Amino acid sequence: MRAAILAVKRSVSLLSKRNYAERHRCDAHMNELPVPCGPWDIWYSDKQSYYNKVLAIGTFWFLFSLGMMIYTDSLFLNFGPPAQPAPPSDMIEECEDLDS
């Protein structure tokens, strides 16, 4: 009985074992690279014109948004001192230190 179990175990292990040494290895070479057919500059110029339009629209939108934030006083960039300075010194009450 033990011999039959060992034989089944051996056959199962041979079926499940992967034998990597027998596989043929094929190295990559330059002939496998894709080769462009036809002129590529038309496609490239179309893509670049699209990207340039996206860049121009994005720049315009950023500048417009920044201008509107400054115009509506939603954003204060501290370019100079505030328009309303602190109150005069005669309006400020001084605290008295009470040592008790």
Rank of each mutant, 00 (worst) to 15 (best):
Trp61Thr: 10
Ser45Glu: 15
Met30Leu: 05
His24Trp: 03
Gly80Lys: 03
Cys26His: 01
Pro82Glu: 05
Asp90Met: 05
Ser45Gly: 11
Ala83Asp: 05
Gly80Met: 04
Arg18Ser: 06
Trp40Tyr: 00
Tyr51Lys: 11
Asn19Leu: 08
Glu93Ser: 01
Leu6Pro: 05
Ala3Pro: 04
Tyr51Glu: 15
Asp41Tyr: 02
Cys26Glu: 11
Ala83Ile: 03
Ser13Trp: 09
Ile5Leu: 13
Leu6Phe: 11
Leu77Thr: 14
Ala21Tyr: 06
Ala3Asp: 15
Met68His: 02
Phe79Tyr: 12
Arg18Pro: 01
Glu32Leu: 07
Ala7Trp: 15
Arg10Asp: 15
Met1Asp: 14
Met1Tyr: 11
Gln84Met: 13
Asp46Lys: 13
Leu14Ser: 10
Cys95Pro: 06
Trp61Pro: 02
Gly80Trp: 08
Leu63Gly: 09
Gly38Trp: 00
Phe60Val: 10
Gly58Arg: 13
Glu93Trp: 01
Thr72Arg: 06
Glu93Val: 01
Ala56Thr: 10
Glu32Ala: 13
Arg10Cys: 09
Leu66Pro: 00
Gly67Asn: 01
Lys9Met: 14
Asp27Arg: 00
Glu32Asp: 14
Phe60Trp: 10
His24Ile: 08
Ala4Ile: 14
Pro34Ala: 02
Ala56Phe: 12
Tyr51Ala: 15
Phe62Gln: 01
Leu55Phe: 12
His29Tyr: 08
Cys95Glu: 13
Ile42His: 07
Glu32Gly: 04
Tyr44Glu: 06
Leu14Met: 07
Pro39Gly: 00
Tyr44Trp: 08
Glu93Arg: 02
Glu94Lys: 05
Lys53Thr: 09
Asp46Pro: 03
Cys26Gln: 04
Val54Thr: 08
Gly80Cys: 03
Ser100Phe: 14
Gln84Tyr: 07
Leu14Thr: 15
Glu94Ile: 03
Ala56Asn: 09
Ile92Gln: 01
Val35Phe: 02
Ala86Gly: 06
Ser11Ala: 14
Ala28Asp: 01
Val54Ser: 13
Glu32Val: 09
Asp73Val: 08
Tyr44Gln: 13
Pro82Ala: 03
Leu6Lys: 11
Phe64Lys: 02
Trp43Arg: 13
Phe62His: 04
Gly67Lys: 00
Leu66His: 02
Tyr50Met: 14
Asp73Asn: 11
Ala4Pro: 12
Met1Leu: 13
Val12Arg: 05
Lys17Arg: 09
Ile92Ala: 02
Asp27Pro: 00
Phe64Ser: 03
Gly58Asn: 14
Glu22Pro: 01
Asn52Lys: 07
Ala86Trp: 09
Arg23Pro: 04
Val12Gln: 06
Pro87Asn: 06
Glu96Ser: 11
Met68Tyr: 08
Met1Ala: 15
Asp46Ser: 14
Val35Asn: 04
Pro88Gln: 07
Ile92Trp: 00
Ser16Cys: 03
